[in-house]
């Protein structure tokens, strides 16, 4: 069934079209004097909203311990397969040897990363965090595959309120055991 759209009957001035043109011109003229909305990016820094998803980084806790335990959930969840984790064991002489596991190498291919933030969501240790860096650039493809050192340098320290592993250790010492 055809739908008949009721059209408004145009008056003489409307059919003349000129008043419409003039009102249009008036609108554009006003616009000329309005403030500009362009953000002049390299000169002006954009204001990033809370929860902005920039480049994924690895963070350390306030003690300087690397939080990642290389569970590889981020690698698993990553839809663009940008993350490659090589798990490794924490050496026995480290004060964190009781945590047992840490990444031997952690690579994120920034060319593949789509900044979806699923890795951050999947991380049980809150070790991988999407921070504010959106300007990711390099002179070669190899340069844009960030390794562990680079990711920790980008990530910095994220204070940890829960301190899960510290509690495990304290508990063990309380019970008289040791790790």
């Amino acid at each position: 069934m055809a739908i008949v759209v009721e059209r408004k009957k145009l008056g003489f001035f409307e059919r003349l079209y000129l008043p419409q043109i003039i009102s249009g011109l008036w609108i554009t003229l006003k616009n000329i004097f309005r403030p500009r909305v362009t953000l002049e990016y390299p000169d002006q820094a954009p204001v990033l909203p809370v929860g902005y998803r920039g480049a994924p980084t690895l963070v350390k806790d306030s003690e300087g311990r690397e939080k990642c335990v290389s569970c590889q959930l981020c690698e698993f969840v990553c839809p663009s397969k940008a993350i490659t984790v090589t798990p490794g064991e924490i050496p026995a002489d480290s004060q964190y040897a009781f945590i047992e596991k840490a990444p031997a190498e952690f690579k994120i291919d920034m060319l593949r990363c789509i900044y979806c933030g699923l890795c951050e969501e999947a991380c049980p240790e809150r070790a991988i965090v999407l921070q504010n860096n959106f300007s990711i650039n390099g002179a070669s493809r190899a340069e844009l595959i960030y390794n562990k050192t680079k990711l920790y340098a980008e990530g910095g320290v994220l204070p940890d309120k829960i301190m899960k592993w510290k509690r495990v250790k304290d508990n063990a010492e309380l019970e008289g055991g040791s790790h």
Binding site: N31, I32, P35, R36, E40
Partner: peptide
């Protein structure tokens, strides 16, 4: 320039 100004650009 004029078109940019009308559209709120520089």
């Amino acid at each position: 320039k004029v078109c940019a100004y009308i559209q709120g650009r520089y």
